[in-house]
Structures are given as C-alpha cells and as structure tokens.
Simulated assay, not measured.
Amino acid sequence: MKKVEIFDPAMCCSTGVCGPVVDPELTRIASAVYSLEKKGFQIERFNLSNDTSAFVENQTVNQALADGGPDALPLVLLDGEIVKTAHYPTNEELAEWFGTAPSELQEKPRVRVSVEFGK
C-alpha cells in the first residue's frame, strides 16, 4: 500500500483551516486527506509548529530543508521519496497515487462545536 506524508509549513493548527481568512488550498487538502484517511489509505500530515520531531527525524525532509529552506514546504513524500516541493499535491495526483477517483476526495470533516455560556 502506498504511503503519503505531507510536511506542512508552520501553521496555527494541524490543518491550517482556522482563523478569519482561510486559504482555499488548505481547505481542499484537508478534505482530501480526511477522505483518504476514512477510506483506510496511509496519509499523514505533519505541521512544523506542532510536529517538529517528524521534520528532524526524517533525513529526506531534513536534507530538503537544509537545501531549500522553508520555501521547500509543503513537502510531499510518496513511499519515502520526495514527489513534490513548495506545493500541495492536486486531487488528481492523490487519486492516481492511491488508485481512486478525484471526485472521492472532497468529503469535508464534520466537527462538533459546543458552546458554553458564562455562569
């Protein structure tokens, strides 16, 4: 089974889909990753802010950052090999790597929000 690892630049949260202005590219990649995870495919994202050890411990990523600096991010590995730098994979690329259809990568995560009012 193929394994994709996405090494994100430093972001405020694990997906980057937060704050007052959301980048549509981050929304798209979050939906694609969520859809693939639900189907049981091996895909992981690592955020430089929260998962620093993943960047340090992976020699391939470490070398790419040494060579290209933070502009190399996001960095995408397919089975441990760099397949994309400075851009997220398209839905078509992800679908090709995992043998699925691009249309199946658009499911949005459902997040339950609870609101507590002051006492």
Rank of each mutant, 00 (worst) to 15 (best):
K3R: 09
N62Q: 15
N50A: 13
T90R: 04
G68I: 09
G40W: 03
K84G: 09
V21Y: 13
E107I: 08
L77G: 12
P70L: 15
V76T: 04
G40L: 06
E81W: 02
V33M: 01
D51A: 07
F7D: 03
D71C: 05
A86V: 00
S103M: 11
G19Q: 06
P109F: 07
Q59I: 11
V111S: 08
K84Y: 00
S103V: 12
E116I: 08
R112C: 10
P74L: 04
L75C: 09
A86R: 13
G80H: 07
T100S: 00
M11S: 06
G68E: 07
A66H: 13
A86F: 02
D67Y: 05
G118S: 09
L78F: 13
V83P: 13
A86D: 10
E96A: 12
Y34V: 01
G68P: 00
W97C: 03
V61H: 01
V56G: 10
N50D: 12
S31F: 10
K38E: 10
L36K: 03
E5L: 04
R28N: 12
E104V: 08
Y34E: 01
D71V: 08
T100F: 02
E37W: 07
H87P: 03
C18M: 08
L26Q: 04
E92F: 13
V113S: 10
I6T: 07
V33S: 05
D67F: 00
V56H: 03
E57P: 13
